[in-house]
Design a protein around this nucleic acid. Structure first.
Lengths: 239, 239
DNA sequence: ATGCGACCTTGCCCCTAGGGCAAGGTCAAC
DNA sequence: GTTGACCTTGCCCTAGGGGCAAGGTCGCAT
């Protein structure tokens, strides 16, 4: 008959772990010897190995205690196996991201985007606009690096068209207007028309993550009450 | 600028998680807006994604906070990557054991061992001896299923030899002797001689796990003071 | 028979990484 | 102007043990 320490060493757990399993009703308390020590038989070894296998698979102890039998047990084990497969896949994905983080030296923005941002100032955009746009691109590339390029090329293309560039400049200049300034209504109308002409009813980026445009817009809105009003007007028109 | 909820949803964590990271100094507290709400910029998104990658890799938050830079950081990341590889391997091993557990219907002993145990009674062994030997085999097969067969074949071979079988029977009968019975000394001598003749100086099973023979012997000893004395005498001679 | 080190007992508090709830303030939309 | 969805801080709770205290016990050597 084994003492708790022998059992623990043999199965590769601590004595504390075994006592916890007793306290939680996972492993029956064995008989005590004349001096009150717990004495374990062979079934305890088998039970404990079974409990450890399940616990290492991530099954909560309370669940291990209540695993059914027969049909029910088989279904539960299948579920546990599937979950385990998912966790392994998840860890592999995490490892991939970890390696990007280690090797990539995490440059926040592609070089071409930095060039683009520096060019904005020369086109007449305010420093606040440039800073805000930089933040937006960081968010986009941090969360969707692969499609960020596509969005960026679209944006660069839009700025290459003089009419659209003028519209963006007006947007920038509207920042310090009062939210009830009547020129905002006219500006909103022209932005809606240009947007529909260029994109139809689907905003760029929407296919990637339906929340993305809203998130970016919220970031813009927070900088200025006039911009917030402008967004309201635009969305009212786009439906 | 993002609120805590927007940031949380975007990165895929709870707001509580972000507050915890602030409290632990992992993520700097951002500025507050006029009503006291936290407002986050793009760096927070980048920082949070980095923290989550590390946290999902199993790095404790306190460690994440203190990751160095440059050379030191690279070494730490390599260590984390290696640990992650180990954990993935471990989970795959756990999954393999889980499937054994699910499919194998966990029969404690191979059929041939059960036959062997039933045969012992007919050879004149006591019920206690048979029960004890059953426990021993359960422990062996539970912990080393692949080499249990080999040990078992050796044991069956030993019992097939009349002289050795008689020695085992004497061992069994010694159970209820007083520990200071002088016949134990003679029995120990003959057991040592037979053991050396059969195995040389290496006990069977020792190659698998150096603790295994001792563990099994402890189980035997616990049943009887005479057996414990016998073990002492034998080890003093072999030792 | 006495000491020693390694074991065992119960009971208690501590940790991580958050979850959940309360009580109150705020925002946006109808 | 009310309603629902946010936000704030503060507090307690959880799982799966780790670690310590204060005491009892074992086997082995002296």
């Amino acid at each position: 008959m084994l003492t708790i320490g022998q059992l623990a060493k043999y199965v590769g757990v601590s004595t504390k772990t075994i006592r916890v399993y007793h306290a939680k009703g996972l492993l029956p308390e064995p008989d005590r010897d004349s001096s009150g020590y717990r004495r374990y038989g062979a079934e305890a070894v088998v039970d404990l190995l079974r409990i450890r296998t399940l616990a290492e698979a991530g099954v909560p102890l309370a669940t291990i205690r209540n695993l059914g039998a027969g049909q029910e047990l088989a279904a539960a084990l299948q579920q546990i196996d599937d979950d385990l497969t998912d966790r392994i896949r998840g860890l592999e994905a995490t490892q991939a991201r970890l390696r990007e983080l280690a090797s990539g030296d995490v440059q926040l923005l592609p070089a071409e985007v930095d060039v683009h941002l520096r060019g904005l100032a020369e086109l007449g955009f305010s420093a606040q606009w440039v800073a805000m746009e930089r933040d937006l691109w960081i968010i986009v590339f941090a969360t969707y690096p692969e499609t960020g390029d596509e969005l960026f090329r679209d944006q660069a293309g839009a700025l290459a068209e003089p009419a659209l560039r003028e519209l963006y400049l007006e947007y920038d200049r509207a920042r310090d207007l009062e939210p009830d300034d009547p020129t905002l209504v006219d500006l909103a109308d022209r932005i809606v028309a240009a947007s529909i002409e260029r994109y139809g009813s689907d905003l760029p980026g929407q296919a990637i993550d339906p929340n993305l445009p809203q998130l970016l817009q919220n970031t813009v809105n927070a900088s200025s009450p006039a911009w917030q009003r402008l967004d309201q007007l635009i969305r009212r028109r786009l439906g």
